[in-house]
Simulated scan of single mutants.
Amino acid sequence: MNPNKMLWEKGDFTRIAQSMRESGDALVHSLNVVPGMAILDLGCGDGTTALPAAERGANVLGVDIAENLVAAGNARATAAGLTNLRFQQGDASDLTDLADESFDLVVSIFGAMFAPRPLAVAKEMTRVTRSGGRIVMGNWIPGDPTLVAQVLKTSAAYTPPPPEGFISPMTWGTEETVRERFEAAGVPAENITCERGTYIFRRQGPPQELLHTFKHYYGPTMNAFEAADKAGRADALEAELIRLFSAHNLGGESDTEIPATFLRVTVHKP
């Protein structure tokens, strides 16, 4: 079985996504989505960006490696009465069932960065984008001091080393690497821009409750706790993450509002 598929079907990312809805809507607002626009949301989860894009009148296809998230996305689309939104299972590094130049906008917010074979991901995203269209990615930044980059860094410290040949998804958060990949996919350097943005995790309740959600429903953190438990270090991992979530929380003792910095990549296909 595809290890990436196993990772994202292991937990239930919809639990995490509930704290990301406001930022997802704000990001879509910044994309200038117009009615009739054809959008591919790659690594879409249950539709944190796909659903608000469809609400603005775009025709949206969400693709995700995890079948449980595809099912959750289709359920959300049905509940919202959005006939212009559908979800299907797929691999961001192999979109062979999607035709060349099918979309005005390809968006991937913390999704395609986790797919294997990153050069193939860049080539596939470029291939399915129409001439004159855009690709917009949101990628976590390696070594960034804010929440998610630190959660992934901490989790990696408690997890066995990855297999030989593994390319870290965090490399998508490095501007030089992003440029190399899209230039190799045929995009001129001047058509690639990178800037920093902020995503905010919001939910009622203390930050320890958000940590609980990461611990039990976020694949990378779940793997870290399983490995830490086998090594007798689960308490140390939990204490480290509690300090991290509490230190970054701006919402006070009873609410959670935690910002996380990401690299926003915009590619204009010639």
Rank of each mutant, 00 (worst) to 15 (best):
G232V: 07
A224M: 03
H268Y: 12
L241N: 00
A234L: 10
R264I: 08
C194I: 05
E164M: 12
A77C: 00
P207V: 00
L7C: 12
A77D: 02
H212R: 05
P145W: 02
P270D: 08
P142S: 12
E164R: 14
G62N: 04
C44M: 11
G197P: 01
T193V: 13
I141G: 02
P118V: 02
L69H: 06
S155I: 03
N59E: 13
T198I: 15
A227E: 01
R243D: 13
V70C: 07
A75K: 08
N249T: 12
V136T: 09
E9F: 05
V136C: 06
P52Y: 03
A92P: 01
S131C: 12
D104H: 10
P169F: 04
P145C: 04
R117D: 08
F87N: 02
I192T: 02
R264S: 11
V178G: 00
R196H: 11
A227Y: 04
L7G: 04
V265E: 01
G111E: 04
I200A: 02
P161V: 06
A58M: 08
N223C: 12
E22T: 10
L98F: 12
D41F: 04
G81V: 09
V33F: 08
M6W: 15
S254V: 06
D91Q: 12
E175N: 01
K123W: 07
A247D: 15
L69V: 10
G111N: 03
N4G: 14
A17V: 07
A26P: 00
R179C: 09
S254T: 09
P169C: 08
A99T: 15
D100V: 12
S102P: 10
A79T: 05
T159F: 04
G197Q: 04
P35C: 10
G219K: 03
V63F: 10
A92I: 01
L119M: 13
L147P: 00
G143Y: 05
A26I: 02
K230S: 12
Y199I: 08
T129P: 02
P220I: 03
S23E: 10
N74P: 07
S23V: 06
L61C: 05
F182T: 00
G111A: 03
E195G: 08
V34D: 09
K215T: 08
A227P: 01
L82V: 03
N139Y: 03
E124D: 10
V265D: 01
A92W: 00
A234E: 07
S19T: 11
G36C: 10
G132V: 13
G232N: 05
E190M: 06
Y217L: 10
Y217N: 14
E176V: 11
A79D: 12
D229L: 14
M20T: 11
A99N: 15
E226H: 11
A185H: 09
